[in-house]
Design a protein around this nucleic acid. Structure first.
Length: 415
RNA sequence: GGAGAGGUGGCAGAGUGGUUGAAUGCGGCACCCUGCUAAGGUGUUACUCCGUUUAUUCGGGGUCGAGGGUUCGAAUCCCUCCCUCUCCGCCA
């Protein structure tokens, strides 16, 4: 949610910035400003009537006044209905606007994404590479057919060393974050209410991509960002408590309806995967340095595994709507001849905080919105294929990344 | 799943239809007093919206879990929902 005052005062600048991520035909600030004006025209009228009523309600009025107030009551109700309608339309239109892209975020879509850093190079294999599905199946560490039997397509079972590898990754991530004691470890519920999903910004847009329970209208979380963003909802945080830094484990559930493509077979896109997510609540002045920290931590995690990846700064349209800036880490998947996102580092500025009403009391005694940031740290489901494929050997075995060996108790899978 | 109780300011806790945004206590803050530690006194202490002001300010509206209703008037009465607690049942 953007600040209407900003739109009022800097209409031109806001419009120019938003056009980096929107088509001109979809952007109608005039309409929003008109609703805002309408609202501010009606409100004083309503309030004047209410003030009049309040005056007579302090003590018991005489019969004549009661008659008068009856009439007034009706007027108030009519006007209230009008105001409510305008307010609803206004809020809806305002909430539909995406965040203002940060200055260094370029306009346009994916094609304008830019690799800003590379770690290691693509590996030259002197044998024919296998894709991770074949590797895992041959090693009998991931069972796709039986998962499909039990749950349908888009699921898998980690078996034996596969389960160990998954567990090792999670341990590696958790231990990494624990080495930064200011980060608090959390395991949130995996189901959340419709309201929470709305506030996290995943509704209304992603309704079809979420799993829903029939009763109680809960959805399965698609990323723990949904939970973390709601954690301090409607709170006024103490300034000295900021920044608040969290990392959370959750299993994530996504319908991925219609998203399946051959090259995204196996684990690259499934209905269920495990992820650790970092999340910050910061003072406005600190959010960009927090962004750098999150990015650096995410990069360190991938680099620790010794995997080739790129850091990619996303163009405006490729960032999700709530974010002012997003940088992705994309790990190389040899069989795809391409790269897949393993972490997304984003700064929402005050956009999410406005929605969720998360504030802090500043030194001047005023309540201000915090800034929120999030970054995966990391999702296992794309790291695991990258490990299998990048570390595969000609004999079908897979080398275990050094940092995982102590958790796995072995150096090679398949021997 | 059944039965009951309850949700009021940072916290505790009054208030059951009319100057109650809310007594009182604790905590916080400011000032004063007191020669240490401590204690005391006075004042102040929710959020939000609209208008006003360069700003401090000031005027007004709304908010007592959420939404709706009754009424001239609702924290207070009614309905729906959410949450918490207690007891019973069921149970991986």
């Amino acid at each position: 949610m953007l600040d209407i005052k900003l739109i009022r005062e800097k209409t031109k600048e806001v419009e120019a910035a938003l056009l980096k991520r929107m088509d001109k035909k979809d952007l109608d600030l005039k309409k929003i400003l008109k609703l805002d004006e309408e609202r501010r025209e009606l409100l004083p009228k309503l309030e004047e009537l209410q003030a009049e009523r309040n005056k007579s309600s302090k003590t018991k009025p005489d019969a004549k006044t009661i008659e008068k107030m009856k009439k007034l009551g009706k007027e108030i109700k009519d006007l209230e209905t009008k105001v409510l309608k305008v307010e609803t339309d206004f809020t809806e239109a305002l909430a539909a606007l995406p965040n203002i892209p940060a200055e260094d975020v370029v306009a346009g879509d994916k094609e304008n994404n830019k690799v800003i850093k590379s770690f290691k190079d693509q590996i030259e294999f002197d044998f024919e590479v296998k894709n991770h599905v074949d590797i895992a199946t041959d090693l009998n560490i991931i069972d796709y057919p039986r998962a499909a039997k039990m749950s349908g397509a888009g699921f898998w079972v980690y078996v034996g060393d596969g389960a160990l590898l998954e567990w090792a990754l999670l341990n590696y991530f958790v231990d990494f974050h624990r080495s930064h004691p200011e980060y608090k470890f959390m395991i949130p519920p995996f189901l959340l209410s419709e309201k929470s999903a709305y506030i996290s910004g995943h509704l209304p847009k992603f309704r079809e991509d979420l799993f829903w329970t029939e009763e109680g209208k809960l959805c399965l979380n698609a990323t723990s960002e949904m939970m973390l963003g709601n954690y301090h909802r409607e709170e006024i945080l103490a300034e000295e408590d900021l920044p608040l830094k969290y990392f959370a484990f959750s299993t994530c559930f996504r319908r991925e309806a219609g998203a399946y493509r051959t090259e995204e077979r196996g684990m690259v896109r499934g209905h269920q995967f495990n992820k650790i997510e970092m999340f910050h609540f910061t003072k406005p002045d600190d959010s960009w340095s927090a962004f750098d920290e999150l990015l650096s931590y995410a990069e360190q995690l991938v680099e620790g595994l010794d995997l080739h990846y790129n850091t990619v700064q996303l163009a405006a349209r490729d960032c999700s709507a709530a974010m002012a800036k997003t940088v992705d880490l994309e790990v190389w998947i040899p069989s795809m001849g391409g790269y897949k996102e393993v972490s997304s580092v984003s700064n929402a500025l005050d956009y999410q905080a406005r929605r969720g009403d998360v504030r802090f009391k500043d030194t001047d005694g005023k309540n201000k919105f915090v800034h929120t940031l999030n970054a995966s740290g990391l999702a296992t489901s794309r790291i695991l294929p990258a490990i299998l494929e990048q570390n595969q050997q000609s004999d079908g075995t897979v080398l275990v990344p050094k940092v995982l060996q102590k958790y796995m108790g072995k150096k090679v899978i398949g021997k």
